[in-house]
Design a protein around this nucleic acid. Structure first.
Lengths: 138, 138
DNA sequence: GTAAATGCAAAGAATTTGCTAGCCC
DNA sequence: GGGCTAGCAAATTCTTTGCATTTAC
């Protein structure tokens, strides 16, 4: 959660971070890999994975793992909430203010140290809902 | 989210459900497999996976996927919140009342249909925190 | 009787890891 | 120069799937 030691600035790492910061989507490791390859064709997938892991350990980015098998990454490392469409898989950022006070509440209830929390909403996004009405009579 | 058609009651399925309801932990598929094998030694892992999937599709159980690579399952299909220890991986149920009103808020903000939400707290559980103080001076 | 479920094993997919060479500080 | 990183590929791990057989309703 807090920076562990120093993190070296390699070309690969910087491009990965740039790519991640340049999108509003919440891409998978493989998507990042494909994008970074446009700039560093010889980068390896393993390097991308290692860097994504390192970066999230240092709090530079956030790893999100929802129901799916693979993780998504988010360059916005501040706490914010998401909506996930169960039909098309889209991930949207929400404007709700993070309810930090809840963390204190949980600390008092459990005696644990709470560092962060995550809130996700699941449903059908407006785009998919439109199509849904066609298939309602199934 | 809502029951889809009929679900056949096989011996395997019933034991899986029983095992899951008989624990307060949030076991992985493999743990369930090991437990069920005590009663049905010849059950296959594939069957366990298939049933866990079926059961969660029918709303009988809940699939939880946190940061880790593998899913955990919860026989409590009502919405409730969790605390996850980032050191030992323990998962605790919390007593916080589900904030259903948030779902409406998100619906209004986004225009999406929200069916459910999930809230998780991350940190260090009290047991691990005790040990932590020994290694603070690293 | 028939559709759905099981067992078994093999396939799949995402991620991690070992090792050598190279680059950052 | 020393150690953190990259590259490459093989290995791991969790999960899914095909097919023949069995079972629930």
């Amino acid at each position: 959660m807090k920076p562990k030691g120093f993190i070296r600035k390699t070309k690969q790492r910087q491009v990965i971070l740039k790519v991640l910061r340049g999108t509003k989507t919440h891409p998978t490791a493989d998507w990042v890999y494909q994008e970074v390859r446009k700039e560093i064709p010889h980068i390896s997938l393993g390097t991308v994975y290692r860097n994504l892991k390192t970066l999230s350990e240092h709090g530079e980015i956030q790893e999100l793992s929802f129901g799916s098998t693979h993780s998504h990454f988010d360059a916005n490392s501040e706490n914010h909430y998401h909506f996930i469409c169960q039909k098309c898989g889209a991930i949207q950022d929400l404007d709700l203010r993070p309810m930090v006070s809840l963390e204190k509440e949980v600390e008092e209830e459990t005696g644990n140290e709470v560092y962060t929390h995550r809130l996700e909403f699941y449903g059908i996004c407006s785009a998919c809902a439109g199509e849904d009405s066609k298939t309602t009579n199934s």
